[in-house]
């Protein structure tokens, strides 16, 4: 696979990081601008309904606090997604603990989920969202990164902590499931 455009993107990030390290705060703005929306998209696609912006902000704060140790072995974007995924897992664990404390019932959670899904006005778009929501968490992560970011399997494997081959299988299974759900109409 040709990686020309991807390399240009990676190189631009490296240049911006170097500028920020030399004291140019505008480079930080450019980096956030380049990646923040993609991170928010990923978090929302994984079912995060509240505090998406906070998650994205925490991701950047963590990343910038350890940019000195960033070795560019993977692209900055892949690294940011990896941090975000870890933060989402932490939050899920915390939410689960909190839920078991207040004993929220299942119905309440489903109701909240459906109500917020109404934010997607277009019915066709809602169907697409529902098709994606029905995927297993791992399938959904792989599918989202591939479809919304065009991310390569090697990068996806880094983010989700799996292998390139397994990610390819997950993607094609997810695509089949989405097609089946949408053709049921």
């Amino acid at each position: 696979m040709s990686a020309g455009n991807r390399d240009v993107d990676v190189q631009l990030d490296v240049t911006l990081i170097a500028r920020w390290q030399r004291g140019d705060q505008r480079a930080a703005s450019e980096l956030v601008e380049r990646h923040a929306q993609a991170l928010a998209r990923f978090a929302a696609a994984q079912g995060v309904r509240e505090g998406v912006e906070e998650l994205v902000q925490d991701t950047f704060v963590r990343a910038f606090n350890s940019l000195e140790s960033f070795r560019a072995e993977s692209s900055l974007r892949t690294w940011l997604f990896t941090i975000l995924k870890r933060l989402m897992l932490d939050r899920q664990r915390a939410d689960r603990r909190a839920k078991s404390q207040v004993e929220l019932d299942e119905g309440h959670a489903v109701q909240e989920f459906n109500a917020l899904d109404g934010l997607v006005a277009d019915e066709a778009m809602q169907r697409v969202r529902q098709a994606v929501d029905r995927l297993s968490p791992l399938q959904r992560e792989v599918f989202t990164l591939r479809v919304t970011e065009g991310m390569a399997y090697t990068e996806i494997a880094r983010v989700v902590g799996s292998t390139e081959g397994a990610c390819r299988v997950h993607y094609h299974n997810a695509m089949r499931a989405v097609k089946e759900y949408l053709s049921d109409d």
């Binding site: 703005s29 912006e53 950047f60 697409v128 969202r129 994606v132 919304t148």
Partner: peptide, 21 residues
């Protein structure tokens, strides 16, 4: 699918994130 997932995502305030860095 790309459009559906993109439209469903909230817009983030880039300036607020940059201020927190």
């Amino acid at each position: 699918v790309n459009e559906g997932l993109t439209r469903g995502a909230p817009r983030v305030d880039v300036a607020a994130i940059v201020r927190a860095l």
